[in-house]
Lab assay of single mutants.
Amino acid sequence: EKVLKRMREIKNELLQAQNPSELYLSSKTELQGLIGQLDEVSLEKNPCIREARRRAVIEVQTLITYIDL
């Protein structure tokens, strides 16, 4: 939940920025750090946690791809 919240904050900052190119590098670095945090999530045998992590990774990767474009 914390990762998704921060990812959404970054997305809003990028969309509202007057000059978003200044934010791209720092935002991309922070998003890659969020992916690292998601990699540390213990998936164990809980399919709900596994699915939530998968969705979060996809959302963060989508935003990274947007920045790259």
Rank of each mutant, 00 (worst) to 15 (best):
V3P: 02
M7G: 02
M7V: 03
R8H: 13
R8L: 12
R8E: 14
E9Q: 07
E9P: 00
E9H: 04
E9R: 03
I10L: 03
I10G: 02
I10S: 02
I10Y: 00
I10V: 02
I10Q: 01
K11S: 07
K11R: 11
K11V: 04
K11I: 04
N12H: 14
N12S: 06
E13M: 13
E13Q: 12
E13Y: 15
E13C: 08
E13R: 09
E13W: 00
L15G: 05
L15R: 06
L15N: 15
Q16Y: 10
Q16V: 09
Q16K: 15
Q16C: 13
Q16W: 09
Q16E: 13
Q16S: 11
A17G: 04
N19P: 08
N19M: 06
N19I: 04
N19G: 07
N19S: 06
P20Y: 02
P20M: 06
P20Q: 09
P20H: 04
P20R: 07
P20A: 06
S21C: 03
S21L: 06
S21G: 12
E22V: 06
E22F: 01
L23H: 03
L23N: 02
L23G: 03
L23R: 05
L23S: 02
L23Q: 07
Y24E: 03
Y24L: 08
L25V: 10
L25D: 07
L25E: 15
L25F: 03
L25W: 10
L25K: 13
L25T: 14
L25G: 04
L25Q: 12
S26L: 05
S26V: 05
S26H: 02
S26K: 11
S26W: 03
S26N: 02
S26P: 04
S27Y: 09
S27I: 14
S27Q: 09
K28H: 04
K28V: 03
K28I: 12
K28S: 02
T29S: 11
T29F: 12
T29L: 12
T29E: 12
T29V: 13
E30A: 02
E30L: 03
E30D: 01
E30S: 04
L31T: 01
L31F: 01
L31D: 00
Q32D: 04
Q32V: 09
G33R: 09
G33I: 04
G33T: 10
G33D: 12
G33L: 07
G33H: 13
G33V: 09
G33W: 07
I35C: 14
I35R: 07
I35F: 01
I35E: 02
I35G: 02
I35P: 00
I35M: 10
I35Y: 03
I35L: 15
G36K: 15
G36P: 11
G36S: 11
G36H: 02
G36A: 13
Q37K: 07
Q37E: 14
Q37T: 10
L38R: 00
L38S: 03
L38G: 02
L38C: 08
L38Y: 02
D39E: 13
D39M: 10
D39V: 08
D39A: 08
D39G: 14
D39S: 11
E40V: 08
E40A: 12
V41K: 07
V41T: 09
V41Y: 08
V41C: 10
S42V: 09
S42Q: 11
S42G: 14
S42F: 05
S42D: 15
L43S: 12
L43Q: 13
L43Y: 13
L43M: 15
L43E: 15
L43W: 13
E44S: 14
E44P: 09
E44T: 07
E44G: 08
E44K: 05
E44C: 12
E44L: 08
K45I: 11
K45Q: 11
K45L: 13
K45M: 15
K45P: 15
N46E: 13
N46V: 05
N46M: 03
P47F: 02
P47M: 07
P47E: 13
P47D: 14
P47G: 10
P47Y: 09
P47I: 09
P47H: 08
C48P: 09
C48K: 13
C48R: 13
C48W: 08
C48V: 12
I49E: 15
I49P: 09
I49D: 15
I49A: 11
I49H: 06
I49M: 11
I49K: 11
R50I: 13
R50K: 11
R50Q: 14
E51F: 05
E51W: 03
E51V: 10
E51Y: 04
E51D: 06
E51T: 05
E51Q: 09
A52V: 08
A52D: 13
A52Y: 05
A52Q: 11
A52P: 06
R53S: 13
R53H: 15
R54I: 03
R54D: 10
R54Y: 07
R54H: 09
R54K: 10
R54E: 15
R54L: 09
R54W: 07
R55D: 08
R55P: 04
R55A: 08
R55M: 08
R55W: 01
R55N: 11
R55C: 10
A56S: 03
A56T: 02
A56M: 05
A56L: 07
A56Y: 02
A56D: 02
A56G: 02
V57P: 04
V57M: 07
V57Y: 12
V57C: 11
V57D: 04
V57G: 07
I58D: 14
I58Y: 14
I58L: 14
E59Q: 10
E59R: 03
E59A: 04
V60R: 00
V60E: 01
V60P: 03
V60Y: 03
Q61L: 05
Q61F: 02
Q61H: 02
T62E: 15
T62N: 15
L63V: 05
L63K: 01
L63D: 03
L63Y: 00
L63T: 01
L63C: 06
L63F: 09
I64S: 04
I64R: 08
I64V: 04
I64W: 00
T65S: 14
T65W: 05
T65V: 04
T65M: 10
T65P: 02
T65A: 12
Y66G: 12
Y66T: 15
Y66V: 08
Y66C: 05
Y66W: 15
I67L: 08
I67Q: 00
I67W: 06
I67P: 01
I67D: 05
I67A: 01
D68N: 13
D68L: 01
L69P: 01
